[in-house]
Amino acid sequence: MTISFVRTLLLYIVVVAAVRLMGKRQISELQTSELVVTLLISNLASVPMEDTAKPLLSGLIPIAVLVISEITASGAMLKIPAFRRVICGRPVVVISHGKLQQTEMKSLRMTTDDLCEQLRQKDVFSVEDVDFAIVETNGKLSVIKKPDKEQPTAGPLGVAQPQKGLEVVVISDGVVSDFALSLCCQDRKWVSDVLDSKGLILPEVFLMTADEKGDYFIVRKEGGA
């Protein structure tokens, strides 16, 4: 049992490192090859984890080879568009100028129910409202509504909106993030000035957000520091 315990810990570290090495992606945004590699890695890691008669290397070597292949393939996809098309395919336009492309939908084995479901997830409740709908290579649907069905935004309405810049968390549970401060163009002195003006000390702050304009929002820690 101790062997299983240690092996599981080791494999956990390896799998996390492997996934980290392959780069950040949400599960739903995985390309075909990434999905295959992710499934294979989890499967490969589980074998030496539960069967101590198998050497640990019998899991580690295939995982390493998959990571190598995946990173090499993604590097190649970046440089060679034709290779990317072979591995990931092309985006498919299923609604063009408001007209359903039935042949394309058939080739994707996409039913009208699937299309309507994905449109609803994009807050589009009528196919008539859609000018273009594109199934991306990761399977997600991109939608462009007809101009008269788009919600008006501040720009076309001529309403001036103040530029606030990026709002970031500069203090989380009493800990200042220098990275967040650099993002909102502030420094630790500014933070301590703000806290002094509010009569607070750092350990009393649960959350503080700030933006480039110097606007901030503070939540005190419950029950004191």
């Binding site: 101590t52 008669a53 198998k54 050497p55 640990l56 290397l57 019998s58």
Partner: peptide
């Protein structure tokens, strides 16, 4: 050998 071969 047991580092990389089937223990059985």
């Amino acid at each position: 050998l047991c580092l990389y071969m089937l223990h059985d």
